[in-house]
Amino acid sequence: MARVVGVHGIGQQLLGEHQLGAAWAPALADGVTRAKGRLDPDDVGMAFYGDLFRPVGRALAVGDPRYTASDVEEGFEQDLLRAWWEEAARTDARIVGPDERTLLRTPTAVQAGLRVLSRLPYFADVALRAMVFDLKQVRRYLTEPGLRERVWERIDAAIGPDTRVLVAHSLGSVAAYEALWHRPDWPVTTLVTIGSPLAIPGLVFERLRPPPDVPDGTLPGTGRWPGNVRAWTNVSDEGDIVALVKDLKPRFGDRVRCHVVHNGSHAHDAKPYLSSQEVGRAVASGLGGAGD
Rank of each mutant, 00 (worst) to 15 (best):
I194A: 10
L80D: 01
S70C: 06
E73Q: 15
T102Y: 00
E86P: 04
A124R: 15
A199G: 08
A157P: 00
V110L: 08
R183A: 12
V174W: 06
R139D: 12
V72T: 04
G172N: 08
P121Y: 03
R140P: 00
I95F: 05
R94N: 13
F76A: 03
A89N: 08
D99R: 12
R105M: 13
R90P: 03
R164G: 10
G75F: 13
F205W: 14
A176P: 00
A83W: 00
R183M: 09
F133G: 10
L104M: 14
M131W: 07
V204D: 03
Q137W: 10
E77D: 09
F123A: 13
L114M: 10
T190N: 04
T190M: 04
H169A: 11
E74F: 13
I155P: 01
G146H: 06
M131Y: 03
E178V: 10
R209H: 12
R82Q: 08
T108Y: 02
A199I: 08
A109T: 03
R90Q: 13
P184C: 13
E87R: 14
V138K: 10
A179K: 05
A175F: 04
Q111E: 14
T189V: 01
R139M: 09
G160I: 11
R105V: 13
F76K: 01
V126L: 14
D99A: 05
T163W: 07
R129D: 14
T190I: 01
D134P: 01
D156K: 01
L120T: 12
R82M: 09
A127D: 15
E73W: 10
Y122D: 15
V132C: 06
A127K: 15
R129C: 12
L166E: 08
G75I: 12
R105I: 02
L142N: 04
I95H: 11
V126A: 14
R148W: 04
A93W: 09
S70F: 08
T163F: 07
R139Y: 13
D156F: 01
L198E: 07
L166H: 00
A112W: 02
P201D: 12
D71L: 05
L203C: 03
A199C: 11
A157H: 07
L147T: 11
R164H: 02
T190Q: 08
L80G: 01
A168M: 07
Y177G: 02
A157Y: 03
I95E: 05
A168V: 03
S70R: 13
